[in-house]
Each structure stands twice: as structure tokens, then as C-alpha cells.
């Protein structure tokens, strides 16, 4: 295996009008490991993830997935130029995305949600796609719920279907944007356990999360963002261990109040 990181971000800048949300982010996410992005609200962590998923177009900077440029590359004269749609599709196919709001399509069953792209995008016959979708649902423990519509599933179940939907396309990298933030603690547990299993299977994961306990126990790398800048990065032991960066100390205080102290 080469030492090319699964995700490499260089000098990423994102502005919305006059507001600079990301001010020159450099980030490497190692292959086969879990990288957690943490930080206070408005620090730009979700925007960073959305740039990597190409749901937002970065204002400046470069993103590479497995060494291949995503969205923008270098032109013949060294200028930043937009890459053709075909290249974008090909690189994007390596990435799976899971949202805070699940975003299942309400008019399709759990099975339909998972099978949709297999049929529509990859032209797989319906029967084969359904079989594959069923296998993916089984992996997240929801084979019995395959024929249910999203409205008939709990939040935790919906999020597990959303994870299965992304995994069915066999991505190399999974992005998670606050996957448990709209779930109550009980349902959070079932989603985190699916994510733990995925991490154990060697999936490269980049996770924006407020679950400090999950980050500390599953991630090999923690990245702390603050005001659009990468403030601290390193192994959980280094980032959370003492002495801590004063900004992290301050940030963690809010969690220690909520009983996470024992996890660190």
C-alpha cells in the first residue's frame, strides 16, 4: 500500500459572501482509519465535510481522494481549474455520505432507498439490486424492516438505513455529518454501534461528531476546528490528554458536565 492518504485537503478556503467559514485547511485522513472532526458550532466542521462530499464548492484549495483530485485540479499553467463532470462522478463514487437528518426518500421503502442508486445509476437489474440492498440492510440489523417506509421507522433505524444506502455503493470512504445529533441517547447507541462495526471492518471514515466518547474510543485521529482553522490534530490521547490546548479544555468542559469525563 502506498502512503497516499485516503483524503488529502490542502489550503481549503470556503467563503459564503463576505463570511469566511474555512480559512486554509490542511488535513490528511489516513486510509482504513477513523478521523473525527470536532469543534464548537460554527467552527466550519460540517462545511469542511460538505466540501469533501462536493455538496459545497470550495472557494480555493484542493481535495484529493486516494490521490485523485476532486472537483478542482491544476491546469497547464498551474492555475486552479474545475475538472470535467466525468472525473467528478468517478471520484465522487468513492465517497459515501451520511447526514444528520438521515435524508431518506419518504416515497420509497427502506429497501427501495438502498437499491435506488444501484438500479438508477449503476443499471443493476431490480432483483439483483434488491438482493444486494437486503444484504446491506441485514448488516445494519434491519432486514426485517426492509418493506417499511421511513415514516414507519425510528430515527435510529432511519439512520442505519441511510448508512446501508451509502454502503451499498461500496465506497472507499464514508463521511458522517453529525450522524447522531438528531437522535435521543438510546437511539444514538444503535447508530454508534453500527459505526463501530464499520470502523472495525477497516472502512476509512471521516466523522463530524459531538460524541466525544465515540471519538475518543474509535478514532485514530482527532481534528479540532475552531473559527474555520485547524487548531489541533493528533491521536485522541494527545488531543484529549493533559496538558490540553486551552481552547480544547474550554470546549471539553461543556461535555464533562454531561458525564463524559469517565470516557477520557
Amino acid at each position: 500500500m502506498s502512503t497516499v492518504p485516503a483524503i488529502r485537503v490542502r489550503g481549503l478556503v470556503k467563503r459564503f459572501g463576505d463570511v469566511e467559514v474555512l480559512s486554509g485547511i490542511d488535513l490528511d485522513a489516513p486510509r482504513g482509519e477513523v478521523t473525527c472532526l470536532i469543534g464548537p458550532s460554527g467552527s466550519g466542521k460540517s462545511t469542511l465535510l460538505r466540501c469533501i462530499a462536493l455538496l459545497e464548492e470550495a472557494t480555493d484549495g484542493f481535495i484529493e481522494i486516494d490521490g485523485e483530485p476532486l472537483g478542482f485540479g491544476l491546469g497547464p499553467n498551474g492555475e486552479r481549474m474545475r475538472l470535467p463532470q466525468a472525473s467528478v462522478r468517478q471520484v465522487r463514487a468513492k465517497i459515501g455520505m451520511v447526514f444528520q437528518q438521515f435524508n431518506l426518500w419518504p416515497h420509497m421503502t427502506a429497501l427501495g432507498n438502498v437499491a435506488e442508486a444501484l438500479v438508477t445509476v449503476h443499471g443493476m437489474p431490480r432483483a439483483a439490486a434488491n438482493a444486494k440492498a437486503m444484504a446491506e440492510l441485514d448488516k445494519v440489523g434491519l432486514a426485517a424492516r426492509a418493506e417499511h417506509y421511513p415514516s414507519e421507522l425510528s430515527g435510529g433505524q432511519q439512520q442505519r438505513v441511510a448508512i446501508a444506502r451509502a454502503l451499498a455503493l461500496e465506497p472507499r470512504i464514508m463521511l458522517f455529518d453529525e450522524p447522531t445529533s438528531s437522535l435521543d441517547p438510546e437511539l444514538t447507541g444503535e447508530v454508534l454501534s453500527v459505526m463501530r462495526g464499520l470502523a472495525d471492518s477497516g472502512m476509512t471514515m471521516l466523522v463530524v461528531t459531538h460524541e466525544i466518547g465515540f471519538a475518543a474510543s474509535v478514532a485514530s485521529k482527532i481534528v479540532f476546528l475552531d473559527h474555520g482553522k485547524l487548531l489541533v490534530e493528533g491521536a485522541p490521547g494527545t488531543v484529549f490528554g493533559k496538558p490540553r490546548h486551552p481552547r480544547i479544555e474550554q470546549f471539553l468542559d461543556t461535555y464533562l458536565d454531561r458525564g463524559a469525563a469517565g470516557l477520557l
Binding site: 455538496l55 462522478r89 465517497i95 455520505m97 435524508n103 426518500w105 442508486a117 445509476v121 451509502a166
Partner: peptide
């Protein structure tokens, strides 16, 4: 957005 990320 979910449709976009799965390649539709």
C-alpha cells in the same frame, strides 16, 4: 443532496 451523493 442525498440523491447527489449516491450519484443520481
Amino acid at each position: 443532496e442525498a440523491a447527489t451523493t449516491v450519484g443520481l
